[in-house]
Amino acid sequence: MTVQDIIKGCIKNDAKYQRLLVVNYSPMLLTVSRRYTPISADAEDVLQDAFIKIFGAIRQYDSNKGKLETWMRTIVINTALKRLNKKCFTHERAVEQFEDIQLHPTVYDHLQAEDVMTLINTLPDGYRQVFNLAVVEGYPHKEIGELLGIEESTSRSNLSKAKKLLRVKLSNQKKQESWARIG
């Protein structure tokens, strides 16, 4: 069974094919949802809502414009962003200024995907959204600004701060691991 078959089945509102779509893509899309919605229960809610939207809008999907996976990721991201209060982007609390730390390459050696996810989720909301959109999804700042309702410059600034904060956290994590080994 190909992706096209699943799409056709979903267009016919066939529950069997809808379920197949959920089974095949939910792990990947749940990761996307979790990056924007750190609380696990909320992330699942977002994913459920996103799938309902996907079923409703799958007729509009054009395979010539991109992969189904990309199209569904976009829907998940939009659903997650809609749930968040946009005020958190415009009134982000001030984060203390960190110096730009240069990380040693070994920092990444023991980091798994789940660790990275956890690390990203420790970022403040505004930084996390911009970081995800810019770094993981590859959205330009202009588009991020439109999506989040913030200025383009704010997007750039938030991304820069997010990266600095991540480096600090990675550096601190590395120090803790060193201490643990010594102990």
């Binding site: 379920r19 792990p27 990947m28 990761t31 990056r35 699942e44 990275v116 993981v136 990266k163």
Partner: peptide
């Protein structure tokens, strides 16, 4: 950036698709 993107982009979170399907 590259490291995080590579780690996260294709990462799949384990989930129970049947339960998710029921909720949907």
């Amino acid at each position: 950036d590259k490291f995080i993107k590579n780690q996260v982009e294709q990462h799949k979170t384990p989930t129970d698709p049947d339960l998710l399907w029921q909720k949907i």
